[in-house]
């Protein structure tokens, strides 16, 4: 990644901005508007420091799902026939629908990559908390993020330890049994870890209340970005009429 021009944005601005932009994009109609949205979102992603190659790699997954739409929609949407394939007929209406959908989904994916994928997931969780999302939900998300990382690290450590002693995987009885142990140990360790963490929390007098996120300030960058997003979203909505 190169320089991220959007770095000063508060996670709250990112969340709300992404939401507004995606809603605006989804309300767009027709391939022309879709193309424009993709171009704009691409620009935003570049501003966020993404390299085109990195974007392409991540978009491949999205477009894979979209390819399925292209196989289905043209043949199932009623309208003017443009292509015969044995018993199937493809309609131009179906093609346009699929194209429009693909462009809008691509633009949305680019917006997510530009605004959300560039910050720590934990910061987004905290932003949700500050936007008054139900506390239990946020808590769950934060703990999953924190302990997901710990679990992954534990699994990785054990895998590395196995590999360091010459373990190669494969399908032998030895390998399968070792995988079983690995999975079992990860679970056991996770449970014990959870127990000790709970003890640690109790020692610091935790009694079921939830940890609070550090206060953050919204700055000028947030105001500027927010205004821009609002203007764009309005334009999109007016443009529909």
């Amino acid at each position: 990644m190169s320089r991220d021009l959007l770095a000063p944005l508060d996670p709250r601005t990112r969340l709300l901005g992404a939401l507004a932009l995606i809603l605006a994009v989804l309300s767009l109609d027709g391939p022309a508007a879709g193309l424009l949205a993709v171009a704009a979102a691409f620009g935003l992603a570049l501003a966020a420091g993404w390299r085109p190659a990195g974007l392409a790699r991540r978009l491949v997954h999205v477009e894979g799902i979209m390819a399925a739409l292209f196989l289905v929609l043209p043949f199932t949407t009623p309208g003017t026939t443009v292509l015969h394939l044995g018993p199937l007929t493809a309609t131009s209406d179906g093609l346009l629908l699929a194209l429009g959908l693909m462009l809008r989904v691509t633009a949305s994916a680019l917006i997510v990559l530009a605004l959300l994928a560039t910050v720590e997931p934990i910061r987004l969780g905290q932003a949700l908390a500050r936007l008054r999302t139900p506390v239990r939900l946020v808590q769950l998300l934060l703990l999953v993020l924190r302990y997901g990382a710990l679990l992954r690290a534990e699994l990785r450590r054990m895998r590395e330890a196995a590999r360091a002693r010459g373990f190669r995987g494969g399908l032998s009885i030895h390998a399968l049994r070792s995988f079983g142990w690995l999975a079992g140990m990860t679970l056991v360790r996770a449970l014990e870890r959870a127990e000790r963490v709970e003890e640690g929390m109790r020692l610091r007098l935790w009694q079921g209340a939830l940890p609070v996120a550090a206060p953050g300030r919204l700055g000028r960058a947030d105001a500027a970005f927010g205004t821009g997003v609002l203007a764009l979203a309005l334009l999109a909505v007016i443009g529909i009429r």
Binding site: L142, L145, R196, V197, G200, R204, L205, V212, A214
Partner: peptide, 24 residues
């Protein structure tokens, strides 16, 4: 604790350090 990973569980450092005082 012998293993600090058992002790730190808040997302960021300042939140973890503030956890005890909040409970107080």
């Amino acid at each position: 604790f012998q293993d600090p990973d058992d002790q730190l569980f808040c997302p960021t450092v300042q939140e973890d350090v503030a956890f005890g005082p909040l409970n107080l």
